[in-house]
Design a binder for these strands. Structure first.
Lengths: 180, 180
DNA sequence: ACCGCAATGTAGCACTTGCTACAAGCCCCC
DNA sequence: GGGGGCTTGTAGCAAGTGCTACATTGCGGT
């Protein structure tokens, strides 16, 4: 029933690509099977059922996302919090991240509605992003943990405004300076 | 084809309730018709097609949301930006807003994927929220417009973390103080 | 009383959904 | 070479999708 691990490892990236490009809306068995060069029959055979399939693909995507985080930057430190935030926003706004961001909001929506597996996936992604971001905080920062939390909150809010086509709202706000 | 406006006005709140409770995932014609006490046949008759139907219901929900904004608070001013942010978060975290927030992330996801109508809807909601929030800024604030933008960005980021079950991240971050 | 039209019910179509029953192919071990 | 199990193809099912054709009802105007 479980089939071989190596087969699944071959299918996952193909399905991941398809989901990233077309969204969860077309993440049904037959389209996914077509993208992976197999049949719905075989997907069920390899993954058991659709929920497990989706969980596995999302986990795979989360992993490659955090891998991309590591390689996108070197480990060179940054001089200020402003520079840290600029760096992350440059990363998330680099065109290649676009498909992932579109998927990200679908994951958030699923988590908010308690779709099984989505919350865990969303948390894993954010925890990984946060811990990486803490390491990116400037040297000698008085409170790297707290700073990373606040900045990441700000960044995610900004990404939401980006997603809905109102990028000027966070931009002008962030330019306007200290919120408190 | 267009049918009478009054009939539509009777159907909209019933369908809005159903969507708020069950999400866009079950916003298909037959469930909506059942919730509105009519038939899929009649919904198409009254609204033309499904896309128009959804657009109208979402617009209706956006309207009742901003109406709720007005009534939730009096027009009394607030003493500080911290107090302003606390006020909005009290509003969004009041249990009755929960269904709307769950729907909100589905709208954001749709906007990010260019589902027709979603972006316009999301923008309308955020523009209305922002302009209301500007009016909520403390008296004598040096930059109410910029402040409202930054704070709203922070709030939306915090709501995202709430939605995925990590409320401590923005809380601890915001407590930690000034991001810059 | 009758006509015309808006409003509604009943069936249905073509399609997609997740999943399964059944059978056939395949390759390894004896 | 023959048995046995892993893998795969073919068909199909029951449910749900948006939408439509057709017929019927009901009501207002003449």
């Amino acid at each position: 029933m479980a089939s071989s691990e190596t087969v699944r490892q071959k299918l996952l990236p193909l399905m991941a690509t398809h989901i990233l490009e077309n969204g969860m809306g077309s993440a049904s068995l037959r389209p996914l099977a077509k993208a992976a060069g197999t049949s719905d029959r075989m997907l069920i055979y390899h993954f058991g059922n659709k929920q497990q399939l989706i969980t596995d693909v999302l986990a795979y995507i989360a992993d490659s996302y955090s891998a991309q985080l590591e390689t996108f930057f070197g480990s060179d430190r940054v001089a200020s919090r402003e520079q840290a935030i600029a760096r992350v926003r440059a990363f998330t706004n680099s065109g290649e991240m676009r498909p992932f961001l579109a998927l990200w909001w679908e994951i958030v929506a699923g988590a908010a509605r308690d779709v099984p597996g989505y919350r865990e996936n969303a948390q894993a992604i954010m925890v990984s992003l946060l811990s990486w971001f803490e390491g990116q905080m400037p040297e000698g920062d008085p409170d790297p943990a707290g700073g990373a939390r606040t900045l990441l909150t700000l960044i995610e809010g900004a990404e939401m405004f980006n997603a809905i086509g109102l990028p000027d709202i966070p931009n002008r706000g962030i330019e306007a300076g200290r919120p408190f």
